[in-house]
Amino acid sequence: MTATLISLISILTGIIGANLMAVAYKKYSFGIVGNTIAGVFGSIFFLKSFGRLGFDPFTIVQADTINIKLLILNLIVSFLGGVIALILIKRLKIILNKN
């Protein structure tokens, strides 16, 4: 498994997180396309921000082995990134519509 594949799986996990959040809480939904975009950007932002703590894709596949604990941590952060991005974008939309 390469670092690129891990990055793509992480982005997919962020998309799943945003879409599951939208299904669970209808008030946060932007439609399937909007939720997917929020999941992509939230996942990438969180992984780039917190990945420097040691669970970026290159560290996960270091020495030609996969560190499962770091991979799981990476996927959790990606999932939460998609969820939090969807919430923050909805709040931003509410704030901008007030003015």
Rank of each mutant, 00 (worst) to 15 (best):
I37E: 07
L5E: 07
F58N: 15
I60D: 03
I68C: 03
G82V: 00
I32K: 14
M21S: 13
S10A: 15
L71G: 03
R91F: 10
I32M: 10
S29G: 13
L88P: 10
N99S: 14
L53H: 04
M21D: 02
A24T: 14
T59V: 11
G51C: 01
K48V: 12
Y28L: 04
G31P: 02
F45P: 11
G14S: 00
G34Q: 03
F41W: 10
I94F: 08
F30H: 06
V40Y: 06
I37S: 12
V77C: 12
I87M: 08
V83N: 01
G31A: 01
I11K: 12
I66Y: 05
K98G: 05
N19L: 04
T2F: 04
F58T: 15
S43R: 00
L12Y: 05
T13G: 03
S29F: 09
F30K: 06
P57Q: 02
K48S: 13
I68D: 04
F79K: 09
L92A: 08
M21N: 09
A63N: 14
G54N: 07
A38E: 07
G82Q: 03
Y25K: 08
D64G: 10
F79H: 05
I76K: 05
N97T: 15
I72D: 05
G54E: 05
I11R: 07
V33H: 12
N35Y: 02
I6L: 12
G34N: 03
A22S: 09
A18D: 01
K69L: 09
K93C: 14
Y28E: 00
L92I: 04
F46D: 00
I9R: 04
T4R: 14
I11L: 06
G51A: 00
I84H: 02
N97W: 14
S7D: 09
V23Q: 15
I9H: 06
M1Y: 12
G39L: 02
T36P: 02
D56H: 04
G42F: 00
N35M: 01
R52P: 12
I32R: 13
I94H: 07
M21K: 13
I76Y: 04
V23I: 15
K27R: 15
G51L: 00
I37P: 12
I87H: 07
G54V: 07
I76P: 08
I37T: 13
T36V: 00
R52A: 15
R52L: 14
M1V: 13
S7G: 15
A3E: 00
G17F: 01
S43P: 08
A3C: 02
D56Q: 07
R91D: 05
N67D: 07
I16Q: 02
